[in-house]
């Protein structure tokens, strides 16, 4: 149990467990560990709120239905697991809006710039992940 309370695991503990978890996912759910399709599905749900006929007619969303599936639940589980891991190694987990020093040194403290780069970075991450089919 002390191992579960440790602040960090060695890289090969974490790596080995990720490999085992992927094996379990293949066996129990016929899925591999991946997250990005969930964001495409969630986009379909969001668009569906304002334009359901558009979503229904969209060829991509006809193939990748905007529904909650195994992977969608996986994505919801990730922050829960990460919180649990952090909580086990400290008395309380604090949430902060404080920026990392490295980021501030490069981009400054302007909150407009923070929002812009945050949004831009998110678009890049989403677009890149889907383009690379990863």
């Amino acid at each position: 149990m002390r191992w579960l309370r440790r602040e960090e695991w060695s890289w090969w503990h974490a790596g080995l467990l990720l490999g085992l978890l992927n094996m379990a996912a293949f066996y129990t759910a016929d899925h591999y560990l991946a997250v990005s399709t969930t964001f495409s599905r969630a986009a379909g749900m969001a668009v569906g709120v304002v334009a359901p006929t558009h979503v229904a007619a969209n060829l991509y969303w006809q193939k990748v239905n905007p529904i909650v599936d195994w992977q969608f639940m996986l994505v919801l589980g990730i922050p829960l697991g990460a919180y649990l891991a952090a909580r086990l190694s400290q008395r309380a987990v604090t949430f902060t809006t404080q920026l990392p020093d490295l980021w501030v040194n490069r981009f400054g403290t302007s909150s407009a710039r923070r929002w812009t780069l945050g949004l831009l970075g998110g678009i890049f991450v989403g677009f890149g992940a889907r383009l690379a089919d990863g």
């Binding site: 440790r6 960090e8 695991w9 503990h13 974490a14 467990l17 990720l18 978890l21 379990a24 996912a25 129990t28 759910a29 560990l33 195994w70 639940m73 996986l74 994505v75 919801l76 589980g77 990730i78 922050p79 829960l80 697991g81 990460a82 919180y83 649990l84 891991a85 952090a86």
Partner: peptide, 11 residues
């Protein structure tokens, strides 16, 4: 599976 995934990534 997601909870375990997040747990391992955090640790």
């Amino acid at each position: 599976t997601g909870i375990l995934f997040g747990f391992i990534l955090q640790k």
